[in-house]
């Protein structure tokens, strides 16, 4: 390790010694995407887990507004059969 170590900006110390994770930035805000297209299957698939469930904001780091838009887009895509409602997981 180098002698110089800069502490990450948002990394605070929790009172009980646990590391507080850096807050993720909404990637839609970052890229200034105004609306999420229900036709963009590739994009939507990234926000759905292998069971077909919509991945929560806590995991993806999306902001409330974009999560709402995303949810709507996924639900529309599901109606058209582009994105699964549920999927079997074999393991």
């Amino acid at each position: 390790m180098a002698a110089y170590y800069k502490k990450p900006m948002n990394k605070k110390r929790h009172p009980f010694g646990m590391d507080v994770r850096r807050r993720k930035i909404c990637r839609f805000c970052e890229n200034k995407i105004d609306f999420i297209d229900y036709k963009d299957e590739r994009l939507l698939r990234r926000f759905v887990n292998d069971r077909g469930k919509i991945i929560g904001r806590r995991i993806t780091g999306n902001c409330a507004k974009h999560q709402r838009e995303l949810t709507r887009a996924i639900k529309r895509a599901r109606q058209l059969g582009l994105v699964p409602y549920t999927a079997e997981v074999f393991d």
Binding site: R27, N31, I33, D37, K39, D40, E41, R42, L43
Partner: peptide, 12 residues
């Protein structure tokens, strides 16, 4: 967008 999106989604 182009960097992140896979090829087929790009055009769209």
């Amino acid at each position: 967008i182009a960097d992140e999106a896979p090829p087929s989604a790009q055009d769209n």
